[in-house]
Design a binder for these strands. Structure first.
Lengths: 198, 198
DNA sequence: CGACCATACGGAGACACCCTCCGCTTTGTC
DNA sequence: GACAAAGCGGAGGGTGTCTCCGTATGGTCG
């Protein structure tokens, strides 16, 4: 995908394309190693380009992140389609979708933070992606609700935020290896025991 | 509470005590205004002291935060006692405790982040406080479970992390005024509808 | 009351990060 | 081969964290 959207100008010069994709490669490794908060200047240095070059291609951290996520977004979308094809019922589909979302958001250490910021600030390349997946989540939730598998009143947006929140807090419980499944269970069924009478 | 723990040396000089408490006052206002991430040097400036003075009293942001929370911790503890006295049953007690925890963690905008970091890094003045409240949460959870109000297998630590996570993600949904209650409900009962047969 | 010393103060400044601006080089084209 | 546009690199401004050290201040003891 060499072009952002439409072709308003002619296509970029060869060296620009080379630099862009090399920066992306380096950033991928750097973020995987140091987490999402690593220094952008350091990435430029490691890529052997000046800071100006990096910032021309990606005006800020979110833009770089968004470009990095592009490939994974595609994977997530195809996973959504696969779930639609394979899942026996809507509840299982929702479960599998949430698992896929959880994997997506765990692509880099610290990713939940910029996603949350994008959701609040709106004007971020990440915001659009998130809104798309929120809509998808809502579709899954509605289907599960129609089937009786999801609680009425629960919105896709809330569940998405829940997944984000759990992924975020998971980072606090490294040593505790029973925390991840416990947090997933918490999001699924909550802490309260089902009451015969509320 | 003029002394940290025990009296290992003589008590601090008068000007030191004055500065310390004045810095605390200013920081309270500054964090309330700009959120937890505001500049520490700016706080020092507003307090009319050099940066060195601020950093001598509070070696880092966490230390300052911990000192600021001290008063609220006391309030939270007394609220816990009040809940113990007043709550009709253990489930209601847990509910009210979680509400109290939610208020505590919302004391400053952005507070969840350093709390999470403290929990993972361990060596932070905030970590000890958190661990204490995790234990308290576990007590409430156990009592509710014995009564049948809380799901078996749910640990106090997980619920505490859940409260933290929901408080964190709440910051993403400012404009959406139905998100806060929805997130609380999500933590309480999850997204899944209670099944007659699992 | 004056001298002495530990304690505490202030601010200069080292360092890291983000990001911009601009003179120079590279690329594509005629 | 020459010319313009596109792109490059890095110097440097702004901000923030945190340290170091010469100096001032407060408590104490003769």
């Amino acid at each position: 995908m060499p072009e952002r959207t439409g072709p308003p100008g002619r296509r970029p010069r060869a060296d620009a394309q080379r630099n862009r994709s090399h920066i992306l490669d380096v950033a991928e490794g750097y973020f995987a190693e140091h987490g999402i908060a690593g220094s952008l200047d350091a990435i430029a240095r490691r890529a052997g380009v000046g800071p100006g070059t990096l910032y021309r291609h990606f005006p800020n951290r979110d833009a770089l992140l968004a470009a990095l996520l592009e490939a994974r977004n595609a994977e997530l979308v195809s996973r959504r389609d696969r779930i639609h094809d394979e899942a026996a019922d809507a509840t299982e589909a929702l479960e599998r979708w949430l698992e896929a979302l959880g994997d997506w958001v765990a692509a880099f250490d610290g990713l939940p933070e910029p996603l949350r910021a994008a959701l609040r600030e709106e004007s971020s390349p990440l915001a659009l992606t998130c809104e798309g997946f929120i809509t998808t989540t809502d579709d899954f939730v509605r289907a599960a609700r129609d089937e009786g598998g999801a609680r009425p009143g629960v919105r896709g947006r809330d569940v998405f935020l829940g997944v984000l929140a759990m992924a975020w807090v998971r980072g606090a419980a490294m040593a505790d290896d029973q925390a991840p499944p416990a947090l997933d269970a918490l999001l699924r069924t909550g802490w309260a025991a089902p009451a015969d009478e509320a």
